[in-house]
Simulated scan of single mutants.
Amino acid sequence: MWGASTGNTRAERTWPEVGSQFARAWRAFFFRLERVHGLQRNNPNHLWLLHTLFLPSINEDCDSFVRSWNSHPISGKGHNKTPNDMRLLGQLEHGIYPDINGGVHPEVLQYYRVEEMEDKEEAERVVIANIREEQYSQYYHEPVAVPKHSSPFEENGKEVKMFSRLLQELESSDFIPSNYRLTPGEWETGIYPIFETIPFGKKGNRRLEVPLPPHIWLKRAIQWVRCLVIMDSIMDSRQ
C-alpha cells in the first residue's frame, strides 16, 4: 500500500476491530499484571517472562483474527466478496507471480530498472532502498526501540532445568502464591475482577472498562505469578 495509512479508509477501519477482538484484552491484562500481580515494566527479566509465556498466545489470537477478517464480506468495491475471494479471483485473472529472492515482484524489479542485474540479492537491496526513500515522507516518527528480552538464566542450562522442575511442582500441587491478589481472600469483593480499566483515546485521558473473563485471564495471571516467583527465587539464590 502506497501513501499514509490514514488515507486508506479500509485500513483505518481495521484497527478498531483489532482492538475490540483481541488486542484490547491483552492490553488490559498487562495493565492488571502491573497493577496487582507484580509486573515491573522496566525490569528486563519481567519482559523476558512476558514474551516467553504469552507471545505464542498473542500470535494465535492475531492469526485467528486474520482468518476471520479475510473471510468476512466487504461492501462497496468489494461487491460483498471476502478478501480471500478477491485474492483468488485476482490470481485467476492475472495469474500467480513467482517470488524472487524473498518476494520481490517481477513488475517491481522492472519498475526500478533492476530486472537485468545479475546479482539478484543486490537487485533486491536496491528495490528496498528505493521504496524506503520514496516512503520516508510518510513516516511520522522514528521506529520504536524494542525492549531487550534475553533470558535471565545462565547459559549452561542448569537454571532453566531448575525453573522447569519447580514450575511443574507448583502446577501439580495447584499451589497459588499469596500476596499477589490471586486468592479469594485477597479480592476486594471475594470475586476475581471481571473488568479492567485502561486509558483510552488519543490523549489517554478517557477510561475504558475491558472485560477479562476469569476462566481465561485468571488462569493466565496464576501462570504469570508462579513463573515470576520461581524466576525471582532463582535470581535471589545467586546472591
Rank of each mutant, 00 (worst) to 15 (best):
192 Y>H: 12
198 I>Y: 02
117 M>C: 02
161 K>H: 05
1 M>K: 04
170 L>F: 13
172 S>D: 11
18 V>Q: 07
48 W>L: 08
166 L>A: 13
132 R>S: 12
239 Q>K: 10
115 E>I: 08
13 R>C: 02
236 D>P: 00
52 T>K: 12
112 Y>H: 09
103 G>F: 03
209 E>Y: 02
216 I>F: 05
176 I>L: 00
214 P>T: 09
63 D>S: 11
164 S>L: 13
46 H>V: 03
68 S>A: 11
35 R>V: 02
115 E>K: 08
157 G>D: 11
127 V>E: 06
71 S>D: 09
81 K>I: 04
68 S>D: 14
143 P>V: 12
226 R>N: 04
13 R>F: 01
107 E>W: 07
51 H>R: 15
61 D>A: 04
17 E>N: 04
140 Y>L: 15
231 M>T: 14
190 G>A: 03
117 M>A: 01
84 N>K: 14
215 H>Q: 13
170 L>M: 10
153 F>N: 08
70 N>S: 05
192 Y>D: 07
69 W>I: 03
231 M>W: 01
13 R>D: 09
187 W>E: 12
145 A>E: 08
191 I>S: 08
160 V>G: 07
178 S>E: 13
162 M>T: 15
24 R>Q: 11
46 H>I: 05
100 I>T: 10
196 E>R: 08
60 E>I: 06
160 V>Y: 06
14 T>N: 06
32 R>Y: 07
51 H>W: 11
156 N>V: 04
111 Y>E: 09
116 E>P: 00
225 V>D: 00
49 L>V: 06
84 N>S: 10
101 N>R: 09
54 F>S: 07
74 I>T: 07
2 W>S: 08
31 F>T: 11
81 K>F: 11
70 N>A: 03
187 W>T: 10
62 C>R: 13
16 P>I: 06
164 S>D: 13
196 E>I: 05
